[in-house]
Design a protein around this nucleic acid. Structure first.
Length: 688
RNA sequence: GGGGCCAUAGCUCAAUCGGUUAGAGCAGCGAACUCAUAAUUCGUUGGUUGGGGGUUCAAGUCCCUCUGGCCCUACCA
C-alpha cells in the first residue's frame, strides 16, 4: 500500500457562538476519518480554524463593549476546549484573523485580479446612521406594506407572505439601534464566475469530487444558467481584512473563510518545517478533503474551486457533504432542551459514546441523522457495553496477572475470518459509510460472544486440570476483543488506549487487526466503559433548557424562574395523557369563539347540567347545556366571558338542543374551571 | 414565490443496473445460561415500502400527482 499525503479540513466554526451537538456531527465525522487514515499509515493532517470576520462579530463586540479581538479570543478558547472534550484532534487550529490568512488572501486576490475576474458595481443597501453600519435585510424590521402587520422582517411578511425589499417597509427600523435606515449606494467588488463556468462544469460533473446528488443539484440549479457575479466586498465598517487595492472595502467573510484552510495549513507547516506550497500548489501531490454541512455546499463546490483554480492552487480531491442533526425527529429546539451545547453534553455523558452513536448513524449521503434519545441509551448499552466491552469483562479477569497462551489456539477460524474483513471495513471507512462499518463490527462482536458462550470458561475454571483450556479460551476472547477495538479505534480512541494498557501492546496501526497477540501479559482488569442511564440524558436536556433560559433574555428568564418557583406537579398531565398529535388543519376545524353568558338557568330534572345562553355579539346566540352545575352558581355566571366551540354539530339532549360547548379544564364534578379571555376580548372573536 | 432532498417493521436504518419470498439491529414475546456492568446465547412476532395514478414481463427503486417533513434561496445564488 502506497502512503498517501492527505490534508483534511472541517468547516470553520463561527466565532459568534459555542459548539453544540449538531456541529459535532461534522467534527466527529472528520476526526474519525482522519484517525482512520493515520491508522492506515498515511500522512494525514487535520486543520481547522475559527471563522472570525463579519458584521455579527462586530455588533457583538460593540454590545459587550470590548474589541472584536477579545471576543474571538474567548470563543476560540471555548471552541478548542469543546473539541478536545470529544477527542477531536486537530493538527492545527488557526483563525481567519491571522497574519497567515491575510497574506494568503492578498496572494489569492492578486491572482484573481490578474485573471480579470473582478469587476465593480454600485449596490444599494440600507444603512443604519446611528450604529454606523450597513444592514443585512434580516436586521431591518417594519410594517408590511401590503397587510400592514407591524414588526415584520426586512424580506417578507410572516403574516401575509408578501415579499418585498426592506426599502418598501413602512416605518423600517434597524434592529441594532432602532434608527430609521437610509438607503446608501456603495461600490462593491464582484467576481465574475461566469468566466470560469466551463471549468466548474467539468470539475463538478467529473464524478470524482462530489457525491452524485450534489453534482446533480449543482447541474440543475446553477450550472444550467449563467452564473451570477459574486459580491465579495463589504464597505466599512466591517470586521475583516481591507482589500488592498480598494481602500474602505473589506473582503466579505465568505471570501477569507475558506482561505483560512490554507492559512491554518501554513501555520502547521511553519511549526513542522514544511512548505505550504507542497500542500496547496496546483502541482502538489497532496489530496485535499473538505468535510462540510449541506448548508454551505454552494461556497465549497463553486466559489471555492473557482478561486483555487484561478489562483493556481490544488483543487480538492473530495468535498464530503453531510446532513444535519435532528433530535427526537425534529430540528434542535432551545425550548425543548434539544439544543444541547457540547459543554453541557460533556458534563453529563461520556464523549466517546456520542462518537460511536454518530458513527453508527452516518452514511455517505446528505440525509439528516437523528439523535433519538432512547435509542442512544439503548445502543450504547447494548452495542458497546453489552457486546464489545463485555468480551473483555467476561474473560480478562481469568488471566489477569498471567500471560496469554504462547501459541494462538484453534478458534474455529474466527480471528482469521474477522481479519479478512479488514479491507472491507477499511473501504467503508474510506467512503464514510461508518454506519455500515459499525454494523459489520458489531456482527463480529456477536460471533465473539458466541465463542465465549460455546467454550464456557466459567465451567473450565472449576476444573484445575483444564487450566490450559481456560487460558486458551481467554486468549481467543481477548484477541477477538482487541481486533474489534482496532477496527473501532478511529471512533473510540479512548477505548483503544485502555486496551493497550490492558494487553500491554500498542494499537498504532490497522494491521494490528491482522495477527493475534500471544504470550503477552494481561494487566489487572478495570471496567472499560460504564453503562449510561436515561437519567443522565434527561438531566442534560433539563440543563439545556436552563442554558437557553439563562441567556435568552427576559422572557425566558421569567419562564426559568417560574418553573423553578412553582414546582407544578405532573398529576393532571399524568391522569390524562396528551392526545394524539394533530395538525394545524385539524385545529382550524374547531372554531373557538369568545362568547358572553347572557343567561344561565338551572334545568328542571337535571343533576349536572346548567342551561346557558351565549352571545357571540350582534344578536347571534347559542343555547348550550353545560355539565357545570356542581361547580358554578348560575347567577355568578351571567355577564362573564367564556370560550365556546361555536361550530360544534348541534346535539339533541334530553332537555333540549345544545348548540355548542363551553371550554373548561378539570376532572369534572366540582373540579371544573371555565376558561375566560383576558380583558379586552369581545364576544365573537375567534381564538387562534 | 423558486429550487432541492427525504418518507421502508413500534424505533433507527439496509436492499447493487428495475430482477427470487423487502433484510438487519434495538424494542417486544418465549426459552437457555450464570463468566460478565440486568450483560450473553437460541428461538420468535411484526411490513398494502406515506396516499393515488402511470410505464414495464417485472417497481421500495423510473414517471406524474397529492400529503407530510427538512434544507437552501428570494433578483447581495
Amino acid at each position: 500500500m502506497t502512503s498517501r499525503k492527505i490534508l483534511v479540513t472541517s468547516a470553520l466554526p463561527y466565532a459568534n457562538g459555542h459548539i453544540h451537538i449538531g456541529h459535532l456531527v461534522e467534527y466527529i465525522q472528520t476526526d474519525i476519518w482522519v484517525r482512520f487514515q493515520k491508522l492506515r499509515g498515511h500522512r494525514c493532517i487535520y486543520v481547522c480554524a475559527d471563522d472570525t470576520h463579519g458584521t455579527a462579530i462586530m455588533i457583538r463586540a460593540r454590545k459587550e463593549g470590548r474589541s472584536e479581538e477579545e471576543v474571538i479570543a474567548d470563543m476560540r478558547e471555548a471552541h478548542i476546549r469543546d473539541f478536545a472534550a470529544f477527542d477531536v484532534e486537530f493538527d492545527n487550529y488557526g483563525s481567519t484573523n491571522s497574519e497567515e490568512n491575510r497574506q494568503y488572501c492578498h496572494r489569492m486576490w492578486s491572482e484573481i485580479r490578474k485573471a480579470g475576474l473582478v469587476k465593480e458595481k454600485d449596490v444599494e443597501q440600507l444603512y443604519d446612521p446611528v450604529a454606523g453600519t450597513f444592514l443585512a435585510d434580516r436586521f431591518v424590521r417594519g410594517t408590511c406594506p401590503k397587510c400592514k402587520s407591524p414588526d415584520q422582517p426586512g424580506d417578507n411578511c410572516s403574516k401575509c407572505g408578501t415579499t418585498y425589499t426592506p426599502a418598501e417597509l413602512i416605518d423600517p427600523k434597524s434592529e441594532h439601534s432602532g434608527a430609521t435606515p437610509e438607503i446608501r449606494v456603495a461600490k462593491h467588488l464582484f467576481i465574475e464566475l461566469e468566466k470560469i463556468h466551463s471549468f466548474l462544469n467539468e470539475w463538478t460533473q467529473s464524478g470524482e469530487h462530489l457525491q452524485p446528488e450534489v453534482a446533480n443539484y449543482l447541474k440543475g440549479h446553477f450550472l444550467g444558467d449563467d452564473l451570477r457575479d459574486w459580491d465579495i466586498s463589504r464597505p466599512a465598517p466591517y470586521f475583516g481584512f481591507e482589500i488592498p487595492d480598494s481602500p474602505g472595502n473589506y473582503w466579505y467573510v465568505w471570501f477569507d473563510a475558506p482561505i483560512g484552510y490554507i492559512a491554518s495549513t501554513t501555520q502547521w507547516c511553519n511549526n513542522n518545517g514544511e512548505n505550504v506550497d507542497d500542500w496547496w500548489n496546483a502541482d502538489s501531490d497532496a489530496e485535499i478533503h473538505h468535510f462540510i454541512g449541506k448548508d454551505i455546499t454552494y461556497f465549497h463546490t463553486l466559489f471555492w474551486p473557482g478561486m483555487l483554480k484561478t489562483a493556481g492552487c490544488k483543487l480538492p480531491e473530495k468535498v464530503h457533504i453531510h446532513g444535519f442533526l435532528t433530535v427526537a425527529g425534529e430540528k434542535m429546539s432551545k425550548s425543548k432542551g434539544t439544543f444541547v451545547m457540547a459543554s453541557t453534553y460533556a458534563k453529563h455523558l461520556p464523549s466517546g459514546v456520542l462518537r460511536y452513536y454518530y458513527a453508527s448513524k452516518l452514511g455517505s449521503g446528505l440525509d439528516d441523522i437523528d439523535l433519538n434519545l432512547e435509542e442512544f441509551v439503548a445502543k450504547i448499552n447494548s452495542d458497546l457495553v453489552g457486546k464489545v466491552v463485555n468480551l473483555a469483562s467476561r474473560s480478562a479477569k481469568f488471566v489477569s496477572g498471567a500471560t496469554l497462551s504462547e501459541a494462538y489456539p484453534d478458534d474455529g477460524g474466527l480471528f482469521a475470518a474477522a481479519a479478512a474483513k479488514g479491507e472491507e471495513l477499511a473501504a467503508l471507512y474510506e467512503a464514510c459509510n461508518y454506519n455500515a462499518a459499525m454494523r459489520e463490527i458489531m456482527a463480529l462482536a456477536d460471533k465473539a460472544n458466541k465463542y465465549v458462550e460455546d467454550t464456557e470458561p466459567w465451567v473450565l475454571r472449576k476444573d484445575p486440570t483444564k487450566a490450559d483450556e481456560l487460558r486458551d479460551a481467554c486468549t481467543v476472547a481477548l484477541n477477538l476483543f482487541r481486533q474489534i477495538v482496532v477496527y473501532l479505534a478511529p471512533v473510540l480512541p479512548e477505548l483503544a488506549k485502555q486496551t493497550e494498557a490492558l494487553l500491554n501492546k500498542p494499537i498504532s496501526s490497522w494491521d494490528e487487526s491482522q495477527s493475534p497477540l500471544t504470550g503477552t501479559s494481561v494487566s489487572e482488569f478495570h471496567h472499560l466503559m460504564k453503562r449510561i442511564d436515561d437519567k443522565q440524558v434527561q438531566q442534560m436536556i433539563e440543563e439545556s433548557k436552563e442554558d437557553n433560559a439563562a441567556d435568552a433574555g427576559e422572557t425566558a428568564a421569567v419562564e426559568f424562574h417560574a418553573a423553578d418557583t412553582w414546582k407544578d406537579a405532573g398529576d393532571a398531565l399524568g391522569n390524562e395523557p396528551l392526545a394524539e398529535e394533530c395538525t394545524i388543519d385539524d385545529f382550524v376545524k374547531v372554531d373557538l369563539r369568545v362568547a358572553r353568558i347572557i343567561e344561565a338557568n338551572h334545568v328542571e330534572g337535571a343533576n349536572k347540567l346548567l342551561q346557558l345562553t351565549l352571545s357571540l355579539g350582534g344578536g347571534e346566540t347559542r343555547n348550550v347545556f353545560a355539565g357545570i352545575k356542581a361547580a358554578y352558581d348560575p347567577e355568578t355566571l351571567v355577564g362573564r366571558l367564556v370560550i365556546c366551540v361555536a361550530n360544534l354539530k348541534p346535539r339533541q339532549m334530553k332537555f333540549g338542543l345544545s348548540q355548542g360547548m363551553v371550554c373548561a379544564s378539570g376532572g369534572g364534578g366540582k373540579e371544573v374551571f371555565l376558561l375566560s379571555p383576558d380583558d379586552g376580548a369581545v364576544p365573537g372573536q375567534r381564538v387562534h
